[in-house]
Design a protein around this nucleic acid. Sequence first.
DNA 1: CGTGTCATGTAATCAGTTACATGATTCA
DNA 2: TGAATCATGTAACTGATTACATGACACG
Lengths: 190, 190
Amino acid sequence: MARENTSRYAVLGMLTHGAQTGYDLKRAIGGSVRHFWSESYGQVYPTLKELVNEGLATVVVESGNIRPDRKVYTVTDAGIEELRHWLVKPVELQPSRNELLLKLFFGRYVPAQELVEVVSKFRERWVEDVAEWADIQDRLRDNMENDLDLRNRLFTLEYGRIVGEATIHWADEVIAALVGTTGTEQESSS
Amino acid sequence: MARENTSRYAVLGMLTHGAQTGYDLKRAIGGSVRHFWSESYGQVYPTLKELVNEGLATVVVESGNIRPDRKVYTVTDAGIEELRHWLVKPVELQPSRNELLLKLFFGRYVPAQELVEVVSKFRERWVEDVAEWADIQDRLRDNMENDLDLRNRLFTLEYGRIVGEATIHWADEVIAALVGTTGTEQESSS
DNA sequence: CGTGTCATGTAATCAGTTACATGATTCA
DNA sequence: TGAATCATGTAACTGATTACATGACACG
């Protein structure tokens, strides 16, 4: 089964959202979509080359005056079509690997107190993330550029908020339950 | 930075939870932890070999009477120690790639109606999953084997329920917002 | 008699990160 | 003067999946 190379679409999409160079692209991905996507240079540059080979983008080299040659990429109509085609395909079920849950599952090998600490740290990270996203959400709404991109972007931020709060809530429950059993002896030798 | 080879711990952990052979292990992972973990044979067999090389497990070949040689693995004390060591380490922040959010983010290139469909399918899958996990949760609680493993396992199922419900709730909001704008023209040509 | 289960594994390939390599310019 | 930013890329490696290869037995 063709494993879906989603990086292609992330790159293609960001090009339609104003990014022009590989460097640009990487920064843009580290910006507005960083809470749900990431790419490395080792992925971005080869992908751009491929897109050009396949006619989904064109490149113009801006050499001369400034620093290293700047390669400015532009999406072609075929590129937009490719993006559209991907957009309407139902999402693949994500690989679903959750390391924290795996640790909890095998949790009997350490004292409850240790589990509490691991879950607490996990919780703290979510608290920070949710706060950050809520912040971006507020600033975006103030900007009041009332277009489709804004609406869609708010959806993604809202996801972070809702799912994040649920995660925090779950962590609270788990911590409470574990603290309730502290003192209860965990199996501590094989 | 050492990328954390979590498969090792999944394999190690499942060995402590009753799995004995590679085949076993794969099935066990496809069972009780399938909603948050998965492994392929191509990962399981080499990992088992490594664990033995590192003294974290031992293997006894059961040849003779039955079909192909059955290789029965057992975790050593060092293996349990290794598992413990991993358990108390804070979880790495997950790569966080969410394809659905990426699609929403680039959503302006397709009509709102199409987005509604993509989100709806995503939602449906979560509804099924949550129902399934709630089911397992109920059955487990009835079994009433009141040990630590049960408690920890219920935590993982509870995660699925809470986060799943939040996800469904979010999807409802998004769908409602999108349906509210159907008819509003999306940009449909570059 | 064919399908499913038990049971092993490897080779090819893919997706992705990290580290390396280079180098000018700008700003504190 | 030294760090940050702009800007390119490649090579090595890792983690993981998929497809392939083999084969016997049990059950309907």
